[in-house]
Design a protein around this nucleic acid. Structure first.
Lengths: 257, 257
DNA sequence: CAAATAGTGTCTTTAAGACAGTATAAC
DNA sequence: GTTATACTGTCTTAAAGACACTATTTG
């Protein structure tokens, strides 16, 4: 059939052959970040098959024909962590021709933020081994560390995953300064202290902000009415459960404006 | 062959069948922005085939097996404009299942910035008609306009391209505030006036900044030594070619620090 | 009481909006 | 001279770093 003679869209669609060209495979990778022990951490999975068998990698999977890349990422997220409805955003699409030795794979990477208490149960349930690694990213060099002081260097990671993790950390560190993403790491959005929020902020940026200034900024952005932020922080009536000496902290909760 | 028995990576690769699953197609779209007549503008192509025949669309093409998505975008860029080596960055990957009525297509969108004098020659050369449209994006609604006052509304664009253009404009407007991208639109980086830079800045943000404040900011960021910017702006010896009354402007050029 | 953590107030620097005023050309 | 554009200086406000100080609990 001659393409020039096709007159209607219906006719066109009937005659279009989507299988005539070779195609790359498409996967979604999901970087699940959390704050553990006042440190930024990421969940990785130990590869059980070649290539890179035994190495640590970002969870991911092939995009099915009936799902968006984000749906693929959420599916993988559910498989690895049993958490749903958490904050997620697209990071970047990686397409180097030889990034996977098996075949041409284009990968759409997503980042997700989960409170640690939602994450810690599932670890080890699955056949595939997962582990949460503390991230250490300074001066352009990344290393990861588990609870037993084992250190994973960039070259120990599978594929181009060191590059992806580094880009993700840069994105998160940047975005925490001008968005509300730090609250996504709170274990309980209906009952938290300002110190908990500051610990998250410090963990992400890997700095030690001045406590007084941090509280002033929180007051300005989230506790007054003349502000642009979408959310508001208000005190709760709950009592703080003292675990140590020192002035007991006030408890707050997040509400939409 | 049983997957369990595969022992080496070489063996694995020999036996991996990348054609066993149905795959989505992958394209790269390239949004070519310029500043024309002191207004932000984008290059679009008139579709010559179904679907959306006769509608305006973002140029794009299928990703070949031996090229990255960025290389695809640069290839399309060269086909439409004959410009090379211009600034380009990845915008976002669009993967809605039914975004293309023909078949499943995942599209990686890129944005590129070109000075208008590099762009204006090629238009009309090709078999496919291209046109540069002024963009008008306010209050969440996009409309496009050509030199003859013809107006293109969101629904007149092909596929989900209105959504993509809107996201691109937001990215550019945001980035112009904290990066040096505005200089990528200069017709001549070795001879320009501060007013030309300001016109570009105003065109992108669709505002009218105070001239004095803009010049002070340029001085601070690009003409002093205690600054973080990668580039520096220094005066040139060239003479200004007067075309009107008024004090003649100084000419500057951009140098790396 | 000391120790520990929570929280406030003040001083300073810097970026940036508003806007008045000056400089140098064409005509 | 007027007009048009280029350019400088000053006042003000807001955000944020540094840091001293106060408050309230445990032990």
């Amino acid at each position: 059939m001659n393409m020039e003679n096709i007159k209607t869209e219906e006719e066109f669609l009937e005659n279009y052959d989507s299988k005539q060209y070779e195609k790359p495979s498409v996967t979604s990778d999901i970087l699940i970040f959390t704050v553990k022990e006042k440190r930024l951490a990421v969940l990785l999975i130990k590869r059980g098959a070649f290539p890179f068998k035994g190495r640590w990698a970002i969870p991911g999977g092939f995009v099915q024909m009936n799902e968006t890349t984000e749906e693929t990422a959420r599916r993988e997220l559910a498989e690895e962590t049993s958490v749903k409805n958490i904050y997620m955003e697209q990071l970047y699409t990686f397409s180097d021709v030889n990034r996977d030795p098996r075949m041409r794979i284009i990968s759409v990477a997503y980042i997700a933020f989960a409170p640690f208490n939602k994450l810690k149960h599932k670890a080890g349930d699955d056949a595939a081994e997962t582990k949460i690694f503390y991230v250490n990213y300074k001066n352009g060099y990344l290393s990861l560390q588990d609870d037993n002081e084992n250190i994973i260097k960039e070259d120990d990671l599978a594929f181009d995953h060191a590059k992806i993790i580094k880009m993700a950390i840069e994105r998160i560190r940047n975005k925490v300064s001008y968005t509300d993403i730090m609250f996504e790491f709170l274990n309980n959005k209906d009952s938290f202290t300002i110190t908990e929020v500051r610990d998250i902020y410090n963990a992400i940026k890997d700095i030690d902000t001045d406590d007084g200034n941090f509280r002033r900024d929180i007051r300005r952005k989230y506790m007054t009415d003349d502000t642009e932020s979408e959310i508001k922080i208000i005190p709760t009536d709950n009592k703080y459960n003292y675990e140590h000496a020192g002035k007991p902290a006030s408890l707050y909760k997040i509400v939409k404006r």
